[in-house]
Write a protein that binds this DNA or RNA. Structure first.
Length: 259
DNA sequence: ATGCCTCTGGGGCAGAGA
């Protein structure tokens, strides 16, 4: 089975590239983030033509997550256990579904904006709720995977120049502790290999030639239960998808599993 | 080094992204 995750930065704007990518890479399950699309407007028909069922959770202009599957899509859950609000509102950032015997979650962790910004406190609360949800579902003890845009670089090597991140989110100790909590709960991070250069970055800013200069960050992550992690035969970042006109600023991460 | 920011909603710009 092939499971992938991709922050598409608008499913509407990315639809031609999304359908081409699905035909080229043919994942069985794809987690999407940053749909920027109402559920009513989600391009269900175009994906059904390619054999995919869709579970989406979106409210328009910002955020939005989905799971696409061609190996079944059951027990859809929108949102986390005791999910926190921001400015009094819930945001569509997590959706779970059972696909081909694996419980899969697509997540879009809040950015945080700055360590002294209320969005950062929201980010840490949100990560607590994600951990609580994984534990409530017994994630470590069953075929289980959480994939998405975590907006956290797990280690200093996961950004192109750590010295530029002294006052930044994405690299702080509390954020990394939240990732460690997922590992402490029994999940394992599946680290992909890069197809070029030495680091498997997944995001490059649109500005200032960040992609050709490889000024990237590894913030799109995959966590899996031991029963899934043990079947991983390959994991890689599809940097080809970051090239050219109309690309997302994130590249897909692909996991190949035996059986 | 595959290219100097892009997306949406709602109007001629602003907010968000990380």
């Amino acid at each position: 089975m092939r499971i992938a995750t991709w922050n598409v930065n608008s499913v509407g704007a990315r639809l031609p590239r999304l359908t081409a990518w699905l035909e080229r890479v043919a994942p069985d399950v794809l987690c999407l983030q940053e749909l920027k699309c109402d559920d009513d407007a989600f391009p269900v028909a175009a994906l059904a033509e390619l054999g995919y069922e869709v579970a989406c959770h979106g409210t328009g202009r910002w955020n939005g997550v989905a799971v696409l599957s061609r190996v079944g899509l059951a027990d859809i859950t929108r949102g986390l256990v005791d999910e926190p609000t921001y400015s009094g509102a819930l945001q569509p950032r997590a959706i779970g579904a059972t696909c081909g015997g694996v419980r899969v979650w697509s997540v879009y962790v809040p950015n945080g904006r700055a360590p002294d910004h209320p969005h950062y406190a929201y980010k840490l609360r949100w990560l607590d709720a994600l951990d609580a949800t994984v534990r409530a579902e017994g994630g470590a003890a069953r075929p289980f995977a959480v994939l998405g845009d975590f907006n956290i670089a797990p280690a200093d090597d996961d950004v192109w120049d750590i010295s530029l991140f002294a006052e930044s989110t994405h690299v702080t100790e509390p954020e990394r502790k939240a990732l460690a909590a997922l590992s402490d709960g029994g999940l394992r991070e599946v680290v992909p290999r890069p197809l070029k250069y030495d680091r498997p970055y997944t995001y490059w800013d649109y500005r200032q030639l960040a992609f050709p200069k490889n000024r990237g960050m590894r913030i799109d992550l995959a966590y899996a239960s031991p029963s899934v992690a043990e079947t991983v035969t390959d994991a890689w970042v599809d940097r080809e998808e970051r090239k050219g006109k109309g690309a997302s600023d994130h590249a897909p991460v692909v996991l190949d599993l035996s059986g």
